[in-house]
Every structure is written in C-alpha cells, then in structure tokens.
Design a binder for these strands. Structure first.
Length: 816
RNA sequence: GGGGAAGUGCUGGAAUUGGCAGACAGGCGUGACUUAGGAUCACGUGCCCUCGGGCGUGAGGGUUCAAGUCCCUCCUUCCCCACCA
C-alpha cells in the first residue's frame, strides 16, 4: 500500500464502490425516522462552478451527519433544464437547445459525482424530460379546472423588428433597446395565462410553521406588500366610475385632483379635444419611459391634464383629472386621488402644476396649516379638519370613522391591497413545457385531456431567431383537433415559466419514474414535508414564494397535505472570484471545480469550502488558504500510517484522559456546529483534535492502542465532511466497511468535563492574574483564591473590595 | 427612497451568546532537516512601552462589576426592491 495521500487514486475508487453498493439509496423504512434533505437543484445553462460546490457540499456533510445519527435520509438531486438562458445559449452556439441542455446535464452529472456527495441518483429528475413535464402540465390542468389559472391581456416587452417578445434581461440600456438588433422596445398587450397567487397572499404572510431565516421572511413579506386602506369610487362627470385605493381615507376631503396612469382605460374618454394632442404625446413617451432607469430616485414628476373632471364622492367637489407616470398601472387600480397636503409625491406634482394644496389633517404640534405656505407634505396622522361632517375627528379614530362614512354613503369600503400580482406563467418561447390547451373556434379554450399528456415539445423546430415563436412557426405542430367537438383547432404555442417546473420538483424526487400521477402517494406519506432546504437567498421572493403557493394550492385541491412544503430553510452566501468580484467568464475569475479537484482532490476542496468562509456569508476564493486543509489531511493520513511502525508503549493515564476529553469535546463541538450550519468551526475543531493527537504522540507517552482509538473517533467525525479519506483510512485501520454506515460517536458530558480550569482574576474589570484551580471549585473557594492572588492584591492597593463577583468556572472580578 | 446583511490582526475567520478578544488556518519572520517535496518539523507574529504596564473589535456616546456582544447617534461596504397611493 502506497503511503502518500493520493486523492486522485482513492476518490474515484470509493465513489464507484459506494455507487455499486447503492450505499445512499433512500428507501421507505417505517422503523426509522425519515429526513428529507433538499438542496436547490442546478440550472443547466452551463458547467458548474465552485459556487455550486459551496452550496452543496456543506449540505451534503450535514445530510451525512444526520444519516450517521440514525435518520433515514433522502438526499436527492436533479436538473432544472427548461428556460430562456438555455435557449439563448443554444442560439449563440448554434446548437439545438435540447442537445445543448442534455450535454450540459451529462457533464454536470459527472461533476456532481466527483463531489463524493450522498446523492441518491436513483431519484434523479430532469424537468425537460417528457415524463417530468407531463406532470407539470397536469398541475396546470388542475389549476385551470379549479379556477386558479386564467387568461388576461398583459403587456410584454416587444421588439418590432424581431417581431418577438423579450425577457427583461434582453432589453438593454437606458434607451431600452433589443439586445439583438438594438431596435427600441415597445410594450404590447398579449393574452396570457396567470395563476391566482394573490388569493393566497394572506396565507403566504403566515410563517408560523416555518424555521426560515428572518431575512427571507422579511423579503417575502415586503414582496407581498400588504396594505390596508379603503377602496373609494369616484366618478367622472360623464358618470364613469374611477375606483381608487387609498391607505389614507381620512384625507379624502383634501383630494384636490386625481391622477391616472397613462395606460388607464378611462384616459381616452376623459381627454378633451383641446388636450388630446398633449395627452397622446405624453402616453407615447410614457410607454417608452415607464421602466427606464428607475434608479433616478428624485426624478421630477411630470404629467398632463386630460381636460376632464371627476366628482369627489365625499363632498361632490369637481376636481381635475391628470395623467402621470408616477401612477403605476400595475399597483392598485392605476388611479389615485391626489392629496398634496399629505402626500409628498402629490405635493411636488401640485406645486409644479399649480394645483390646490388643501390641508385636512392637523397633526399634534400644529395650530393651523396653510396650503399656500407649506414647503412639503405633512404625512403624519392627526385630527381631521376641513372634512365636512367628520371635521374634528381625532387621529386615532379617523380611519375607522371615514370607512363607516364611506359605507353609509355606499361609495367605498375597507379594502386590502397587495404589491404581489398574480403569477404570469406564459412565455413566448420554445424551450419550456407547452401549455396544455387548445383553441377551438367552436368550443373556445379547451384543456387537453389528462390521458393525452404530455403535450410534447417537437424537436424539429427552427429555434434560431426568425421573429416568430418556434412553436408558432412549426408547420404542423399547432394544428390539432378539438378534444370536445373533434373539429379543427389550434394548440397554445406559449410555454410555461420555468419557475413552474421548479415549484414541484421536490415532489418528483419522491418517485421520478412513477406514471400514474406526479408522485407515488406512499412515498409522499413517508417523506414529505421537506425537513431541510438549502440554497441561495436570491430565490427568496421568486422560487420560494411560488413553491409555497404551489403547495397550498395543491393542498386545497387535495393533492398535497400540510400547509408548507419545506419546514427549515437555510441560505448560503456566494463565493466570489479571487479578485473579490462576482465570478464570470468575461472577468476570467471563474474557479472551475474540475481543476480544483484535479489539483487537490474532492475532500480537500470540500473541507476548504467549509473552512474558508462562513457559509452564510461566502466571500472571495482565496487560493492560498486552501494549503491549511491540504496540510491537515496529509497530517491525518501520515498519523494513520505511522501507527503501524509505532513501538509499543505504555500510555500515561493522564495523557489518555486528556485525549479522551478532547475527543468528547470535539464530538460536542462538531455535532452542534453541523446542526447550526456552522461549518468553518467544524473543520477547525477537527484540526484541533488532530493537533492534540500529534501532541500526545510526540510526548512519547501515548501507546498505539490509544492512538488507534483516538484516530477512529477522529475519522468518524471526519466522515461527513471528507468522506473519501475517512473511508480509506477507516479501512486502513482494519475497521469494517463502510464508515458511512457507522453510528455517530456518542457524546459523554462526563468525559468532556475539564478537571482543572483557568480562573481569571480581575480587579475593576481588568485581568490581573490567572490561576489554575479544580473545575468544581466552590464560589467561596474561588473568591478566597482570588483575594489571595499577589497580583490582584498589588492592584487593589490595600483597599477593601466593595464587591466581589464570582462567575463559577470562569472568573472572579474584585471591585475596589 | 425603502428593506436586508455586515464592519474584529497583513488575510480568511473564532469568541461557550454579557465574562481571558484574536481559537483554527493562511501569509510573513527565524531556525532545523535535507536525494528538492505541492516538502516537512520547531519557535515567533495585534499596536505601544521607561518591561511595571498601557491601548486595542468602523466612529462617538450610554447601560453594566464586566461590552466585539445590549441601547442611542453617526459613518462605510455589499445585496435585494424600487414613484406602492
């Protein structure tokens, strides 16, 4: 047996053995407590970089630890394979998206295998496989059947030259031009599919069942953006209702004008002939500008008077109606009542266009307010003034009393508004799951019957850019017959948002080959919900909201059980390039895991990723610091091989006790830190134990038998983090295969206990002395020992202590 | 503008959650050993000092016997969202 540590020799060997033995296959076992450990699946737009390893290998270590603790752990993996980046990359390289994607999958699979993780490959799922997206389509049909999916007109960014929809990232620069042909992009209304996620907005705000990071909960809460207020019906002079949402109904009497979004449907009708030219010019410009460079924080408010007027329902006052781009069609109703005295945006607008500012709230500290004199809006709450019958209402009753007033006059009521919109799932793209619907001139929208799923994506399409959606362009694909009447019909040519595929992949892992449903109920009953989910925080508001919605919607359809799909969530940070910048090919700072594994071995890379940065923080990849891990593993390796040649020796009782103590302290340390996702201190604790074993050996008083037992404990604690070397050395010590089937070492608090401690002696909070005392020292004895300290006495300068604080086992502070 | 996270040696980072600041590593320095290896091993390494000690966790203030940790004000960096009515 070669004695040098050669990871390139041992790692592939053990990986092959583990796989041949199906060591990590997760099967239902009702005798054991299950643990579903999920890590976000990779997207297949290229090769993996070290950031994937940073996300996955610590998760693997924790999953392995739980397995050794006796849990029946499922740790599955798959590929998120549909979507626009794949399609674009394919176009760039002039290769079919499918071919390109599956080529990437093959390489990613190889890369993932080289990690030595405990993936259960028998549960692999790929979202672009027909056997997978058949069920993505099936979920769509369930939503459609139960009124959770609907169609409506919605604007998209459109390139008039390429004649195609553009995704947000394909619209570039301040002038918003098409990334391909540089033509200015326009908005175009298309009939698209939506999911009613807003129906679940309130439930999604409830995180009581979740052990999730506060940051993610806050991000989701803000994203959903619930605000309470009133919905109030204004009317145009012609009698058309203009519905308005306001969080400040108490300021209704101060509404001196209204503002509509330029896209609002009533603009056309309200606009008078004199104003028409100006209004149309503004609308045209706003359509181009509405999304431009929003970073321009203090952008000056602009707008145009329509010439039309509306009636304020609380006082029947006639107020002018303007349009302005600071009112968004996508929030609320696309129309606001403007109260310049109490809203800063309205105030700026009013001053600019010389509109009336009328104070109707008198906050504490003000005797009176004069609209002409004000220099900014006063948003504070307070007593209502100039408010007709409600004048004099105190601030804390203003909201409710106004609502009551609105109800009594039947012009408004309490209302809740959300920032969250319904989920637009239509994509005018090729590389996605086709939406399983046909359009029949006789029967309208007809769902494809479930027994005809999947609606397969054709391979023989022109996927190079032609100005048409590839599915529309296909000569025959969209031509079909109506499932209802049998007449000629056309297929929907849009595909589904790829977030739809990833909203339920954790369910497909349960039974990836199952063909009677999206998952096998037996597997669901045993494994679900996901116990731990790990991945990047960048998914906080998209994927992680969608998957929660998906689960809740499916629960209401009787498909899933429980209220949440993933109980515990932990996010890792990002690994940056050695230059501290985000890794990118153009910067040339990408760290390729293949190269690192070839250079150092997978175990070293794994351990370094855990050791080098805090997992939740990430940081720059430092090519020097990895040497510490290289040396550590070499030292462990050397120590195991040195054992063979060690002369027999008696171990001194004290030494053995010390090592055993260190082992048990390390068990506690490593166990706690793995539970807490604090991987850097896991590795440092293992290094400390290694150093302790070396020190004991070097003392010459540590016999081979004791060293062997110390090493066995060390290897067991190393098994989750560095699985290959642990397995190899475990075998070298003559222990039975596999170390990964061994139970986690038991922690014994008695054995971890220190006999002696260093008692810190402070005078007035400053450390003056340290003495070694028995660990069990009484408070009284500690106090006496401290007062007896010469150093302490010197600093007490003969004064009497006014107070002596004893922290048992730690320190004594003498206050004089 | 709103929200979130974080500021500790030359670097990555520890600190039992209010109790010895700098564990464990990297780097650097000095030395040992050399058939030179991706070496290895030993010792040292926050700053200042009159060698008693003094000062030190972004800045300033506060609470406390005791603050990296708690409170207030401010500064800096990174991330997310952005006219939210």
């Amino acid at each position: 047996m070669e004695e040098r540590y050669k990871p390139e020799e041992i790692e592939p060997r053990w990986q092959a053995r583990w796989e041949a033995d199906q060591l990590y296959k997760a099967e239902i076992d009702h005798q054991r407590q299950k643990y579903y450990f999920l890590t976000m699946l990779p997207y297949t737009s290229g090769d993996m970089h070290i950031g994937h390893w940073f996300a996955m290998t610590p998760s693997d270590a924790r999953a392995r630890y739980l397995r050794m603790r006796g849990y029946n752990v499922m740790f599955p993996i798959g590929f998120d394979a549909f979507g626009l980046p794949a399609e674009n990359a394919a176009i760039e390289r002039d290769i079919h998206p499918k071919q390109w994607t599956y080529k990437n999958i093959a390489n990613q699979r190889r890369q993932l295998r080289s990690m030595g993780a405990m993936w259960d490959w028998s549960r692999e799922a790929i979202s672009a496989d027909p056997s997978y997206y058949r069920w993505t389509q099936w979920f769509f049909l369930q939503f459609l059947k139960n009124d959770l999916a609907y169609k409506k007109l919605s604007p998209v960014d459109w390139c008039p030259h390429c004649n195609t929809t553009l995704a947000r990232e394909q619209v570039i620069g301040e002038n918003r031009v098409c990334e391909r042909c540089k033509t200015p992009v326009i908005k175009k209304d298309l009939d698209q599919w939506f999911f009613r996620i807003t129906r679940y907005a309130d439930e999604l705000l409830d995180f009581s069942l979740l052990d999730w990071p506060e940051t993610v909960k806050t991000l989701q809460t803000n994203w959903i953006g619930r605000s309470e207020g009133a919905s109030v019906r204004f009317e145009t002079e012609a009698g058309d209702p203009i519905e308005v949402f306001t969080t400040r109904p108490d300021t209704l009497w101060g509404a001196t004008f209204m503002v509509l979004a330029p896209e609002h449907s009533l603009v056309e009708k309200l606009t008078t002939d004199e104003q028409r030219e100006q209004v149309e010019a503004y609308i045209h410009q706003a359509a181009r500008q509405s999304d431009i460079e929003r970073e321009a924080v203090d952008k000056e408010k602009t707008g145009v008077f329509t010439g039309g007027f509306a009636i304020n329902p609380v006082n029947d006052e006639r107020i002018p109606v303007w349009i302005a781009d600071y009112v968004l069609m996508t929030y609320g109703t696309g129309a606001i009542m403007a109260v310049p005295a109490h809203d800063q945006r309205d105030f700026e607008f009013a001053r600019k266009y010389d509109l009336e500012v009328r104070p109707v709230i008198l906050p504490k500290g003000y005797d009176s307010l004069d609209g002409d004199e004000m220099s900014e809006a006063i948003p504070a709450h307070g007593e209502m003034i100039n408010s007709g019958p409600l004048s004099g209402t105190p601030g804390d009753e203003a909201f409710e009393r106004t609502i009551d007033f609105l109800k009594s006059k039947a012009v408004g009521e309490f209302s809740v508004n959300y920032r969250l919109h319904d989920w637009l799932i239509s994509r005018q793209r090729y590389w996605g799951a086709p939406i399983p619907v046909v359009y029949c001139p006789e029967c309208g929208i007809v769902p494809v019957p479930e027994d005809q799923l999947p609606v397969e994506l054709p391979d023989d399409v022109e996927w190079r850019p032609t100005g048409e959606s590839p599915l529309k362009f296909h000569p025959t694909w969209k031509t079909t017959t109506c499932p209802d009447c049998g007449g000629p019909a056309e297929r929907e040519t849009d595909t589904m948002d790829t977030f739809m595929c990833s909203s339920w992949y954790h369910l497909r892992y349960l039974s990836p080959g199952y063909d009677k449903g999206p998952f096998d109920q037996r597997e669901y009953d045993y494994w679900m919900p996901v116990d731990t989910y790990t991945g990047g925080v960048e998914h906080a508001t998209m994927h992680l909201i969608y998957t929660r919605f998906f689960h809740k919607a499916c629960r209401d359809l009787g498909i899933t059980e429980g209220h949440e799909p993933m109980l515990q969530l932990r996010n890792q940070g990002h690994i940056l390039g050695p230059d501290g910048q985000r890794m990118s090919k153009s910067r040339g700072n990408v760290i390729d895991p293949d190269e690192q594994v070839a250079m150092y071995g997978a175990d070293t890379v794994r351990a370094y990723l855990m050791f080098g940065n805090r997992w939740t923080e990430g940081g720059a990849w430092n090519p020097e610091n990895i040497q510490g891990v290289v040396r550590w593993l070499n030292r462990v390796w050397t120590l195991v091989y040195e054992l063979k040649d060690m002369p027999a020796a008696e171990t001194e009782a004290g030494i053995e006790r010390e090592v055993v103590r260190k082992i048990h302290q390390t068990i506690r340390h490593v166990s706690n830190d793995l539970e807490q996702f604090e991987f850097n201190t896991v590795i440092s604790a293992l290094m400390e134990l290694t150093n302790e074993l070396y020190a004991a050996r070097d003392g010459g008083k540590f016999g081979p038998a004791e060293l062997r037992s110390g090493l066995e404990s060390l290897l067991l604690l190393m098994a989750p983090e560095v699985p290959h070397i642990a397995e190899e050395l475990w075998q070298e010590l003559g222990k039975p295969y596999s170390i990964h089937k061994q139970p986690w070492p038991e922690f014994d608090p008695e054995l971890a206990k220190e006999d002696e401690i260093t008692l810190v002696i402070q005078v007035n909070g400053k450390v003056r002395d340290r003495i070694t005392v028995p660990a069990e020292i009484s408070e009284q004895a500690a106090r006496q020992a401290a007062l007896a300290s010469e150093a302490a006495q010197r600093f007490m300068e003969g004064k009497e202590p006014s107070e002596v604080i004893v922290v048992p086992g730690r320190l004594v502070n003498i206050v004089v």
